[in-house]
């Protein structure tokens, strides 16, 4: 057994070899534990097959003005609506100050194709599918979409106007591959 004097022998600054070993061992174990936790947390993120963004092609030729269809992209519902002139005019007439998430209809559609409103059908509140895409469904107080779960109303440009949702319905990345075909993703 080493006595206290022996352990402290030759040390003037009060730091013993043992203190160094303690700090080094605990730090090493700490870094090691964190390194093990990272993959354990990361495994919960979307896996490669989920992330592989399949792009969806939609034929929009059959959608008449005033009609909308519901399709899906990355397993999420997508609304494609062929707006009528009145709906576009209504959307343009709204002053930006009245909007919770200010965006013009031009920002939400492609140039020259502003009658095509393509959004995710996922309410930005808690993710229900709003009503209004199918014939005869409740389109809410602003003539766009209405989410029945918690009562969010969207206008003709699918912008949030009333209720608990914080954002406009999301416009996914898409482009017109031809006049009648849209590729989402």
């Amino acid at each position: 057994m080493a006595s206290e004097t022996e352990l402290n022998a030759g040390i003037e600054d009060g730091v013993r070899r043992r203190d160094f070993i303690n700090i080094a061992a605990v730090s090493f174990a700490g870094v090691g534990s964190v390194a093990v936790v990272l993959p354990l947390l990361n495994q919960m993120n979307p896996s490669a097959d989920v992330l592989a963004l399949s792009s969806t092609e939609i034929d929009i030729s059959a959608i008449q003005p005033g009609q909308a269809i519901k399709t899906s992209w990355r397993k999420q519902p997508v609304f494609v609506r062929n707006l009528v002139a009145k709906e576009i005019a209504e959307a343009k007439a709204v002053p930006m100050g009245d909007l919770r998430d200010p965006e013009t209809i031009d920002q939400r559609t492609k140039p020259g194709k502003e009658n095509w409103l393509i959004t995710l059908g996922v309410c930005t509140h808690l993710g229900c599918v709003p009503l209004g895409a199918a014939e005869g469904e409740n389109r809410g107080d602003f003539g766009g979409y209405f989410c029945p779960c918690h009562g969010s109303h969207y206008d003709t440009a699918a912008r949030i106007r009333k209720g608990p949702a914080p954002k406009n319905l999301v416009v996914p990345p898409y482009e017109f591959t031809s006049d009648t075909v849209v590729t989402i993703g």
Binding site: P46, K75, L126, G127
Partner: peptide
């Protein structure tokens, strides 16, 4: 809806939700 609660967290909400779900839905 319930995992949607986490998307209300500012900035990191949506990534946290995707982490919880392991996907977008």
């Amino acid at each position: 809806v319930i995992t949607g609660f986490f998307s209300a967290i500012p900035l990191v909400g949506e990534p946290v939700r995707e982490w919880l779900l392991g996907g977008f839905v």
